[in-house]
Design a protein around this nucleic acid. Structure first.
Lengths: 348, 348
DNA sequence: TTGAAAGCGTTACCAG
DNA sequence: CTGGTAACGCTTTCAA
């Protein structure tokens, strides 16, 4: 067991209370005494005991707010499940987590959710999947600067805001990874199409596309690129647009499905009888997509660590507030998982 | 905050002590009272508070033993680092972890390490990377049956022993995954070679090979298979054997490096000038191997989650002993990571 | 400026 | 069979 406050107090011939005040710079300690206490503490590598600390604060729990968008998608459900588990775990450590979930992509709604958490529930930290717009950015900076509320973004980032860190995939890199795999499966022949629903205020999807194009069209590549933009991620909409794509594009060898609507894309491929001729790579490690791998419709699925995206923001914020530990990095980039037929058996 | 022992006690009109005894079946509680207490507890979803529990046991810490082999390899170093971090974290929860590390693959040494932990240090749980032999298996079963010591295997399993669970890769599946990728990069042409050092008592490597062969040689495959066995994992030994392989095998299109000695294989490929003609897939997500991806010598590296393999055995054992929670599964299969040029930037 | 005491949730121990 | 008390490490509050 590491050294405790009490032991330091005995070593220095003072009381626990004094040691506590000295180490946390709360004043009311004679400078010489404070210096000696700090010296002893660092010498013995003192770290506050989490269990004791949490217990002592049971009367005044810390409140952390969580704001999430797109909670209706299966992937975000997995993230949410993980966040709820972490919240339950943290409840034993005097941390309360308040969730605010949204299916819309409306910045005004997001900002009002944040405000409600701050004003009504007096949260002392915030984790969110931010919308990519100035309104939200301004709000986050205000919380940071004027209220000193630490913020962590997850799943999607807002790089210009003054958040503590981002936890999620490097979307540019995941687009590049798909391009590399696409070159492999198409043997660099024919035309490759990207299918994307252009969600306003949602930067992750745009970045995937950018990374993909950058890597696919390197000098010397024989591949043609066709970009398809569909109005939304509805299954039937994706189906129709994919059918049209298949009909109108001669020599189509690959499809990269960037946004949800995967089921429509797959059905169109199957119904047109070209599932084995046109290679398909999609995002999102969800049961339906893994099934498409198993039945040979999709070549690869790109996954990301839903567990970590749900749990890490909360545990980092709890550490930050309770132990005064800042996150060690600005970017916690989660795995870019390459899933194919034989490495998905143990998932889900 | 969840319901506490104290609150249950008040609801039932008894004292904390009685509730404690009732819930843990320690006897000395009138049956009717015990039944009522349990009913109230389940009704309110009582879970013991981890912080309080840990604190109350500070005077009598739990001791967990860890026995690891092959600690000299870079991958096992990463696992060990993660286990040490977890041990530090658990020290605040009244858990002490005692490590016994070995570079040899000697069953007699492993058994004596286990015995020392049990006899001298009185560990109440054990996590180990077992050698695959009857001597170790018998010892583990003895600990389980006669001493009631819970055991978890990690990184490599001993499926016939009565361990609680296994945490690590599904090695058969990872071999199959490599075969799938190998078919892709070689376009199913030519001869593919496997290079393996036949470590006695080490089942993980044999399983990788078995999975690979099973999947590569499916009916209709055009690929030829050449199995190369080298005496050990020494770099120079691997180098010489790879050079010979390259010289003697006409139409060699792929190499699967199963065991350490990777550096020798890569050097041979580079020195012979055939690095871009012969495709290479290796195991182990270590810096040297990722470098081989970056410089284009290796096509893929198969990684596994070193973090989880180090930390999960300890936290599951701590939960098992402190909270009486059995692991939920017999197999915790960690990721089979497919690493290629664009998804390794954020690693290491 | 400092110390002492209470309380957080749990277990262990001892007295009734 | 049951209840009370002390202890774990820490913060907070009150008194000196």
């Amino acid at each position: 067991m590491a050294i405790t406050l009490n032991q330091i107090a005995q070593l220095c011939g003072v009381s626990r209370g004094t040691v506590d005040r000295a180490l946390h710079n709360k004043g009311n300690v004679r400078p010489e005494v404070a210096a000696r206490i700090k010296a002893v503490a660092t010498e013995h590598g003192y770290t506050p005991n989490r269990a004791g600390l949490a217990l002592s604060r049971a009367a005044h729990p810390i409140r952390i707010g969580v704001v999430m968008i797109s909670v209706e998608t299966p992937f975000m459900q997995m993230v949410l499940d993980s966040a709820r588990r972490e919240a339950r775990r943290l409840s034993a450590f005097s941390v309360e987590v308040i969730f605010r979930l949204s299916q819309s992509l409306d910045p005004v709604e997001q900002v009002s959710m944040i405000e409600e958490l701050v004003e009504q529930h007096h949260i002392s930290a915030l984790a969110l999947t931010p919308l990519d717009c100035l309104l939200v950015e301004t709000k986050l900076n205000e919380l940071t600067e004027q209220r000193g509320i630490p913020i962590i973004t997850f799943n999607t980032d807002l790089a210009n805001s003054r958040r503590l860190c981002y936890i999620g995939q490097d979307n540019l890199a995941s687009g590049r990874t798909v391009a590399e795999l696409m070159r492999l499966v198409t043997r660099e022949c024919g035309t490759v199409a990207t299918i994307i629903a252009p969600f306003l205020y949602h930067s992750a999807y745009r970045e995937r596309l950018a990374g993909f194009k950058e890597e696919l069209l390197t000098p010397g590549s024989q591949l043609q690129l066709q970009e398809v933009t569909i109005p939304n991620d509805n299954r039937d909409v994706a189906y129709e647009h994919t059918l049209r794509l298949l009909r109108d594009t001669p020599n189509l060898t690959g499809i990269y499905a960037i946004t949800p609507g995967y089921a429509g894309v797959c059905s169109a491929l199957v119904d047109s009888g070209r599932a084995h001729e046109v290679h398909l790579i999609m995002h999102d490690e969800i049961p339906a997509n893994l099934h498409e791998i198993r039945r040979g419709v999709a070549d690869f699925v790109i996954g990301q660590d839903a567990q970590l995206q749900g749990s890490l923001p909360l545990s980092l914020l709890a550490d930050h507030i309770q132990l005064n530990q800042r996150p060690q990095k600005e970017f916690y980039h989660t795995d870019i998982r390459v899933l194919l037929r034989h490495n998905i058996d143990n998932l889900l």
